[in-house]
């Protein structure tokens, strides 16, 4: 088929004019808009009421509901905990982001450090180890902002096994508490709540469609 491309540069102006006419808005001053925004009702729960211990327990419970394996350790035992998880994984080749603590790279395994690895190299790895930005207990969500220790997005996507190190003080109870922790909105973010899943066939929940099928969390009790 012959596709005639007729760029219509005026569409932008036309759409904006139609939108402005529809909302009767004369260019509102930023201040006025700010006031209107600030006045929006926000009567929902912003911060949770759980104790520190209960908050971590809820996070672990939610993660386990998703089928994630969670082990807890003290701040001094992170290395050992990671090593134990790696040993029991039956896997050998792992990718890690360049910003991950070198002490976590247990000897005896093959470590590919992500310095612009290409997708096919990442895909060949059997697992990935990362840190996290935050955990949200209410929904068992792991938040990645993809900093140097949290890996580029592709690293936590292609390997089938993901080990994530989460610190207790990174765990908040409610989703609004996470947003309150973001001093600046992240350019990139991924919120992971359980392994990838589908219910597209007769609403039967099947885990592990495309992303990692196995999620392990090392919960560091640093509070």
């Amino acid at each position: 088929m012959n596709v005639h491309v007729q760029p219509r540069p005026r569409s932008r102006q036309m759409i904006l004019e139609r939108v402005r006419a529809a909302t009767h808005s004369v260019t509102k001053g930023a201040g006025e808009l700010e006031d209107a925004y600030a006045a929006l009702p926000r009567g929902y729960v912003r911060s949770g009421g759980l104790s520190g211990e209960a908050r971590i327990a809820l996070m672990i419970e939610r993660l386990r509901e998703y089928g994630a394996e969670v082990i807890e350790c003290g701040p001094e035992q992170v290395q050992a905990a990671i090593a134990a998880q790696l040993a029991s994984s039956g896997k050998h080749t792992f990718v890690v982001p360049a910003g991950l603590s070198a002490a976590w790279l247990t000897p005896g395994f093959e470590w590919k450090i992500d310095r612009d690895l290409i997708a096919s190299e990442i895909e060949q790895a059997e697992g990935v180890v990362t840190a996290a930005f935050c955990g949200v207990a209410d929904s068992g969500t792991i938040v990645l902002h993809h900093s140097a220790a949290e890996a580029r997005r592709v690293l936590t996507l292609l390997p089938d096994w993901h080990l994530c190190v989460l610190r207790a003080r990174q765990v908040v109870e409610t989703l609004p508490e996470y947003f309150a922790r973001c001093e600046q909105a992240p350019g990139l973010a991924t919120y992971i709540s359980g392994p990838s899943a589908t219910a597209d066939i007769e609403m039967t929940r099947i885990k592990g469609v495309h992303g990692p099928r196995l999620l392990h969390v090392v919960m560091v009790r640093d509070e």
């Binding site: 929904s139 068992g140 580029r152 997005r153 989703l175 991924t190």
Partner: peptide, 21 residues
């Protein structure tokens, strides 16, 4: 939508990030 506390994956991105995506 699906009766979950949160859907498994939510992605946020902003324009282009060199080296990622």
């Amino acid at each position: 939508a699906t009766g979950e506390r949160m859907n498994p994956y939510t992605s946020v991105w902003t324009g282009v990030k060199p080296g990622d995506g």
